[in-house]
Nucleic acid binder design. Structure first.
Length: 601
RNA sequence: GGGGGCGUAGCUCAAUUGGUUAGAGUACCGGACUGUCGAUCCGGUGGUUGCGGGUUCGAGUCCCGUCGCCCUCGCCA
């Protein structure tokens, strides 16, 4: 072992090491030069240790005086208990310090473009004046040095490990599927990779591989092949616009099982979720998870991935609308729409006229034509629509929305979709602005959303479209409705929702060719058309496909929830920005014309 | 493609209604200091106010355009 190589990490030394001569390697988190001492806090991913250089070793002391932030050092020295009263309770190593007797400067570092230093706190590490994200992304290797990100990536490792242990124990095989595949229609936009060898005969242009949006088709083929319990921690790629919780490449736990029904998948996965939260967060998730119907959550929360850590539940008011003389409500109902509202408990004082205007503007951007508001007082309503609300309607509203003095009622009327969307968004908006979500509470609310409709009407294309994907099995009792009332057919599909994030989704697949043919028919897809699009899968399903189903969990989002961030870039080592650029490498970038010529581009 | 927000020193931010030489903290450089720990104290370097144009006696501030970043709708079966 070279003399500069570490004997211990920077998070390891305790009082039991006092008197030992040790070597530490690490980065300079901070330094404090004093008359007769130079203090250097040495950092690695295990922790922080204070190193002292003392003036009685003149040469060493002089060298230590030049040390700057982020230099990489090797320090040999003797572990010493700190002076009485000089212990630092913020550090795990705070009872001791290392008195240096040798220093190797393994590498110097220019002043970094932003401060990497972390501040030891009683609760862990803090980041002073965190630099702008685009700068940190440009120097991601410096950003990743911060304990905050190192902790998140360690958590991610733990998550992967828990998943592999759990599924291995349950008898699953971890199998790999191709990255270079065939583009299939529908779904997200593919990332395409040109073939150097294969060309279109007529145009001379290359043929193309597609990078997988998910291993969906392959895992079904693995079921046909008899690998009845499969999983993979798989990278997925989708060329769509990004969000705070969406990256162009992301990671899913992809899983599929044969000879199962919905309940088998849900029980397996909620067991995994409980294991994950126990071992990654020390939190016990009570099982079984609630199973909520799609219709119910759309009504109560206005979203199919609701956050129910706070109240603000939406109530159906359509039946009361007829008791009012308010034209807008009545018109909404007579044109097939809905009137729904929610109660901001104690909100009457929190929102001025201007504040309510801002809420109106907020729902307006989501398509709502207006926002009716009522400030509830002991014996009356203060509201622009008060005069349209007879006494019995007022009483009914109070009861329906559980309204008391000082509450603020907010009501939207219109098409059901708009009402859901605007009130659903308003819920989370209000929760954020009123501070109803305390992320420090580590409150994890998980549930299944089930009974999704199999089809949604595509008004633009004037046809039924698959809500999930065209291989999702309908519920058996809804099969007779396939042709007559497609809107009423519910799918054997399920989403896992935690704290308002869609963490996963899956379904039981169709393994019966007749049912599959009827589904294609509903979707307006002729047999030859279906054959052209999904031929190899349809062939495979004919050759003895077992009943099967599965799920995919978004591991980036799960890590976000576990680590308490709302930014997906915080849980990925080398993420892309919102325009899908990698600010560190500069990808995407132009390539050599020679490369393009080889590809026929 | 649409909506919203932001862009000032290496970094984080301030700058009144459009008004003097654009400030502070931190980083960096120099000095002081008998134990610091986000050290402290003194001094110093550091600016094309994203870029281009316009209005004005005068623009960091107002207007137009453009670029970049973030949030969001569409999109993501």
């Amino acid at each position: 072992m070279a003399e500069w190589q570490r004997t211990h990490t920077c998070g390891e030394l305790r009082q039991t090491h006092i008197g030992q001569t040790v070597v530490l390697n690490g980065w300079v988190n901070s330094y404090r030069a004093y008359n007769d001492q130079v203090f250097v806090d040495l950092r690695d991913r295990y922790g922080l240790t204070q190193v002292v250089f003392e003036s009685d070793q003149a040469e060493l002391f002089a060298a230590a005086g030049d040390i700057r932030n982020e230099w990489v050092l090797s320090v040999r020295g003797k572990v010493r208990e700190r002076l009485p009263g000089k212990h630092n309770p913020k550090l795990a190593t705070g009872d001791i310090e290392l008195v240096a007797d040798a220093l190797h400067i393994l590498n110097r570092c220019p002043p970094p473009p932003f401060e990497v230093m972390s501040i030891p706190l009683e609760t862990g590490f803090g980041d002073p004046e965190l630099a702008g994200e685009d700068l940190r992304l440009q120097y991601r290797y410096l950003d990743l040095r911060r304990p905050t990100l190192q902790r998140t990536l360690s958590l991610r490792h733990r998550l992967n490990k828990v998943i592999r242990d759990y599924l291995d124990f349950q008898g699953f095989l971890e199998l790999e599927t191709p990255l270079l595949g065939r583009s299939t229609p529908e779904g997200a936009r593919d990332y395409l990779v040109p073939s150097r060898i294969w060309r279109d005969e007529k145009t001379g242009r290359p043929h193309w591989y597609a990078l997988p949006q998910s291993p969906q088709l392959y895992k079904q083929l693995l079921m046909v092949a008899g690998y009845d319990k499969y999983f993979q921690i798989a990278r997925c790629l989708r060329d769509e616009d990004l969000r705070a919780d969406r990256q162009p490449e992301f990671t899913q736990l992809d899983l599929e099982m044969s000879f199962v029904e919905v309940n088998d998948v849900l029980v397996l996965i909620e067991g995994l979720i409980a294991e994950i939260f126990q071992r990654c967060a020390g939190v016990t998730i009570p099982l079984p998870l609630p199973r909520l119907g799609y219709e119910e959550v759309m009504l109560k929360y206005g979203s199919d991935k609701p956050d129910w850590r706070f109240g603000l539940e939406i109530a159906e008011l359509s039946d009361l609308a007829t008791q009012t003389t308010f034209k807008i409500f009545q018109e909404a109902i007579s044109s097939g729409g809905k009137v729904r509202g929610l109660n901001v408990v104690g909100g009457a004082e929190k929102f001025s006229r201007k504040g309510i205007d801002q809420l109106t503007e907020f729902v307006g951007r989501l398509g709502a034509k207006g926002l009716a508001w009522i400030k509830v007082e002991a014996d009356k309503f203060t509201s622009p629509i008060e005069k349209f609300l007879p006494a019995d309607a007022q009483a009914a509203l109070r009861q329906r929305l559980k309204a008391g003095t000082g509450d603020l009622l907010l009501i939207v009327a219109g098409q059901e979709e708009i009402v859901c969307q605007s009130l659903g968004a308003l819920r989370t908006h209000l929760a954020t602005t009123l501070g109803l979500i305390d992320s420090a509470r580590r409150d994890f609310q998980a549930a299944w959303i089930i009974d999704f409709p199999s089809f949604i009407w595509d008004a633009e294309e004037k046809r039924w479209a698959a809500n999930h994907h065209p291989f999702t099995a309908p519920r058996d009792e809804d099969l007779p409705l396939l042709e007559s009332e497609p809107a009423k057919v519910r799918a054997k599909a399920y989403d896992l929702v935690i704290n308002g994030y869609e963490v996963g989704g899956g379904s039981i697949r169709i393994h019966n060719p007749e049912v599959q043919a009827r589904i294609f028919a509903v979707l307006g897809m002729a047999p030859e058309q279906a054959r052209q699009r999904f031929g190899f899968l349809l062939d495979a399903l004919k050759y003895g496909a077992p009943p099967h189903g599965g799920i995919a969990l978004g591991l980036d989002r799960l890590t976000m929830i576990l680590s308490g961030t709302t930014n997906i870039r915080d849980v990925i080592a080398f993420p892309k920005n919102q325009k899908a650029r990698d600010l560190m490498t500069g990808a995407p970038a132009a390539v050599d014309p020679k490369q393009l010529r080889e590809l026929g581009l």
